[in-house]
Computed example of a mutant assay.
Amino acid sequence: MILSYKSHQPIEIKSGKISVIGTNSPEIYTELINGLQDFNDELTLTDDVYQSLEIKKFIDFDSVALLTHKLLEKYSKDVINAVVKSMTEESQNRVNDEIRQLYSVLQEALFMTDLPLEIQYDGELKRLLSYCHMKLAFNNSMKPYDIIINDLKIHLECDLKSVVCLNNVANYLSKAEFGDLLVEVQAMNLPLLLVEFTELKQCDFYQNAEGLFIDQDFVDWKL
């Protein structure tokens, strides 16, 4: 994919690579963040043959979901579909047998009322998983790095074609963790897009990531 901001150099978003757009301009940073959430028309996204793509469909701006631990809430339908798809026929049959037993017990309880009530299991595993209030097993020791990796794993396991996009990861990752993130992104062969409010002299933090820095004078610098 190719992401373009106004008249500036385009950014190529590649699988297995981290792409970075950095700036020290509050105006530019605000326009970038709003554009990635489809709140303005300052950004355009195309595929590799320059066919237009919808930003809201192909860019997942996940910073809020990541920091509030609501990743699974955002991707629950995708995860449920992936879980059901990965289940063996034996596993599905075992679940169905156990649920039918549960429904049988519940039906006996309903007979104790003086009302003509009945329930019936429809065999819909996706609906059953949504009733289970599935969630990611976060704990107090889980670092922002771990949550970012989980976000990428969700996209990998669910075979999502959209790009994970985060902002200001330099605020909560160490340089060593960013190096590890480069390795994981390459191993998963997924794209990751970062938007950073930073200074040009601090861009060595992003190591082997590829991208663009736009200064306050709107001058482009290749990272």
Score class of each variant (00 low, 15 high):
residue 208 N to A: 12
residue 60 D to K: 05
residue 5 Y to D: 03
residue 77 K to E: 13
residue 73 E to T: 12
residue 154 I to E: 02
residue 221 W to E: 09
residue 166 L to T: 02
residue 143 K to W: 01
residue 187 A to C: 00
residue 122 D to M: 07
residue 62 D to M: 01
residue 73 E to Y: 09
residue 166 L to F: 09
residue 149 I to L: 14
residue 7 S to T: 13
residue 163 V to N: 04
residue 149 I to D: 10
residue 79 V to L: 09
residue 193 L to V: 02
residue 77 K to Q: 12
residue 98 E to G: 02
residue 134 M to V: 10
residue 47 D to T: 07
residue 157 E to D: 13
residue 72 L to G: 01
residue 120 Q to V: 08
residue 183 V to N: 15
residue 167 N to V: 00
residue 189 N to C: 02
residue 119 I to K: 14
residue 135 K to C: 02
residue 144 P to L: 04
residue 148 I to W: 08
residue 37 Q to A: 01
residue 142 M to G: 04
residue 37 Q to T: 04
residue 177 E to Q: 15
residue 18 I to P: 03
residue 149 I to K: 12
residue 113 T to A: 06
residue 150 N to E: 15
residue 31 E to F: 01
residue 203 C to V: 04
residue 163 V to F: 02
residue 26 P to V: 04
residue 106 L to W: 13
residue 106 L to Y: 15
residue 148 I to Y: 08
residue 140 N to R: 07
residue 53 L to R: 14
residue 34 N to C: 05
residue 205 F to K: 11
residue 184 E to P: 00
residue 12 E to S: 08
residue 109 A to P: 00
residue 108 E to D: 15
residue 19 S to H: 05
residue 90 E to K: 13
residue 214 I to D: 05
residue 221 W to I: 00
residue 152 L to C: 05
residue 199 E to G: 08
residue 126 K to H: 10
residue 37 Q to C: 02
residue 93 N to T: 08
residue 101 Q to S: 11
residue 44 T to D: 14
residue 33 I to A: 07
residue 22 G to E: 08
residue 43 L to P: 04
residue 171 N to Y: 02
residue 120 Q to N: 14
residue 183 V to I: 14
residue 115 L to V: 03
residue 12 E to M: 04
residue 113 T to M: 08
residue 21 I to W: 12
residue 133 H to K: 11
residue 188 M to F: 11
residue 212 L to D: 06
residue 147 I to Q: 07
residue 109 A to I: 06
residue 147 I to A: 04
residue 207 Q to R: 14
residue 201 K to N: 13
residue 14 K to Y: 01
residue 181 L to H: 10
residue 56 K to G: 01
residue 189 N to Y: 05
residue 148 I to N: 09
residue 43 L to S: 05
residue 89 E to D: 14
residue 13 I to L: 15
residue 68 T to Q: 13
residue 121 Y to M: 08
residue 31 E to D: 12
residue 97 D to I: 09
residue 13 I to Q: 07
residue 208 N to W: 00
residue 209 A to V: 03
residue 121 Y to I: 03
residue 154 I to K: 01
residue 159 D to E: 15
residue 88 T to R: 05
residue 194 L to A: 08
residue 123 G to P: 10
residue 5 Y to Q: 06
residue 223 L to N: 06
residue 7 S to I: 03
residue 18 I to C: 04
residue 33 I to H: 05
residue 154 I to L: 02
residue 125 L to T: 07
residue 107 Q to L: 02
residue 187 A to V: 05
residue 137 A to S: 14
residue 144 P to Q: 06
residue 50 Y to A: 13
residue 78 D to K: 02
residue 16 G to F: 01
residue 18 I to W: 04
residue 168 N to D: 15
residue 78 D to N: 14
residue 44 T to R: 15
